[in-house]
Design a protein around this nucleic acid. Structure first.
Lengths: 117, 117
DNA sequence: CGGAATCCTTCATGATACTG
DNA sequence: CAGTATCATGAAGGATTCCG
C-alpha cells in the first residue's frame, strides 16, 4: 500500500497513467469516433456525423478538437466552398487501436456474463 | 461506415463493448481502487481509504459497491465490533488487470510525448 | 458544409453531519 | 470502523440558433 501522488501536466492532473489514457480516449464519444476513423483512410465531418446518429454537432466538433490536440487525429481543411474537412488517424493515433481492442475484448466477455444471468 | 445500434442491458446502454468496459472500470476512482487491490490479497476499507487520501468515504463506498455488483470485487464482512470489512479482487476481477496494464502502458507513452514538448 | 455561440439539463463527484 | 443521508457543486453533455 502506497500513497498516491498526483501529477500535473498543463491543465491535466492524474495519479496514474491509466487515468491519463482514460482522459484522452474516455468519455461518451471518443472511442466510437476512433473506431470509425480506424476503418477507413479518412472521413469527412458529415460522414462521421451520419455514422453516429445520436451525437450532436457540438459534441462531435469538440471531441475531434480534443483528439486533434492530443495528436491522435489529423484535421485537413480544403479551401473550397462549400467547406470540406477530412479527419483521419495520425500515426500516433494508430497506436491506440490495440488498447481499444483490449477494452473491446474484455467488454465482450463481460457482456456474456451479463447475458448469462 | 455503418450505423451504430445501441444495446440495452438492464439499466445500461452502450453502442459497443468498449463503452461497456469503460462503464465498468471508468470514472475517477475505479482504476486506482483496482490497482491497490491488485497489489495485495485483500484490503480493509480503512486501509484502502488511507492509500487514496483524496477520495471521500462516500465515493469509496459507492465505487466499491459498483465493482462488487459487476463481479470484480469481493466484499467480506466480519461480524465483530468494531466492524471489519475486507475487499479483494474476484477471479473475474483479475481478468481486468491486463486491460489496465494496456491502458497504463499507452498512458506512459503518451506522458512522454507530453513532456517532450 | 462545417462549424461557433449561447443557454440549459443531467450526472458525477464532493462536503458535511450523523450512526450501529 | 465502516458505513448512510442530505445537500451542494462543477463538469459533461445536449438543444437551439446563427454564420462564412
Amino acid at each position: 500500500m502506497k500513497e498516491c501522488t498526483i501529477k500535473h501536466n498543463g491543465n491535466r492532473s492524474y495519479s496514474c497513467t491509466v487515468e491519463l489514457t482514460l482522459q484522452v480516449i474516455g468519455g461518451k464519444w471518443k472511442p466510437v469516433i476512433l473506431y470509425h476513423l480506424s476503418r477507413v483512410d479518412c472521413l469527412r465531418f458529415g460522414e462521421l456525423k451520419k455514422s453516429m446518429p445520436n451525437i450532436t454537432q457540438k459534441m462531435l466538433t469538440q471531441q475531434l478538437r480534443e483528439l486533434e490536440q492530443n495528436g491522435l487525429v489529423n484535421r485537413e481543411v480544403y479551401a473550397q466552398v462549400p467547406p470540406k474537412v477530412e479527419y483521419s488517424l495520425t500515426t500516433f493515433g494508430l497506436t491506440i487501436l490495440p488498447v481499444l481492442n483490449s477494452l473491446r475484448e474484455w467488454g465482450d466477455t463481460f457482456e456474456q456474463r451479463l447475458e448469462s444471468v
